[in-house]
């Protein structure tokens, strides 16, 4: 890639930052060139972001219908899945899935709530509120 061809397409996901890539300068040698983003990167990053957003909004709908607990919504908001939340919180996966049941979630002890809140990086008071 020539330095002049380094994409400067203003990738919205970079939030104004630019990254650096190696490209061929005018003297024919490779050097570090700043790039303001490539539409391809933007596409794939947004795809991953939207995949989690969609899971979160699906979960939110189910929470409102009384089919799931806010825990599931917060898990996807934190861009986690059950396996990762299990590793981050130290709670078994089957217990997490059980805590997705609204009735079980409502009876959750303050200690477990605190454990989830810490793993998800939110205040414990926010855990039972979705949306």
């Amino acid at each position: 890639m020539n330095a002049a061809d380094v994409p400067q397409e203003g990738n919205s996901t970079c939030a104004g930052h630019c990254k650096a890539v190696y490209a061929r300068g005018a003297d024919g040698r490779l050097r570090l060139v700043q790039s303001h983003g490539w539409a391809v990167e933007e596409t794939v990053t947004l795809q991953a972001v939207h995949a989690f957003d969609e899971l979160a909004s699906d979960a939110l709908r189910r929470v409102r219908d009384g089919q799931s607990s806010p825990l599931e919504y917060h898990m996807y908001r934190a861009r986690m899945d059950v396996a990762l939340l299990s590793q981050a919180s130290g709670i078994w996966q089957w217990r997490i899935r059980r805590h997705f049941r609204p009735a079980v979630f409502a009876r959750l002890s303050p200690a477990l709530r605190a454990q989830y809140a810490k793993a998800l990086g939110i205040p414990a008071s926010q855990l039972s509120v979705a949306g």
């Binding site: 990254k19 190696y22 490779l30 050097r31 794939v44 990053t45 795809q47 995949a51």
Partner: peptide, 29 residues
């Protein structure tokens, strides 16, 4: 989702673009 994941691993932040191939070329030079 699968092919997007491949491209993310190849091009996203911290790969120097093209999965480190450009950076290794700079090393060879």
């Amino acid at each position: 989702l699968y092919i997007g994941h491949l491209v993310r691993m190849q091009e996203e932040i911290g790969t120097g673009g093209a999965g480190f191939r450009f950076m290794y070329a700079a090393f060879l030079e």
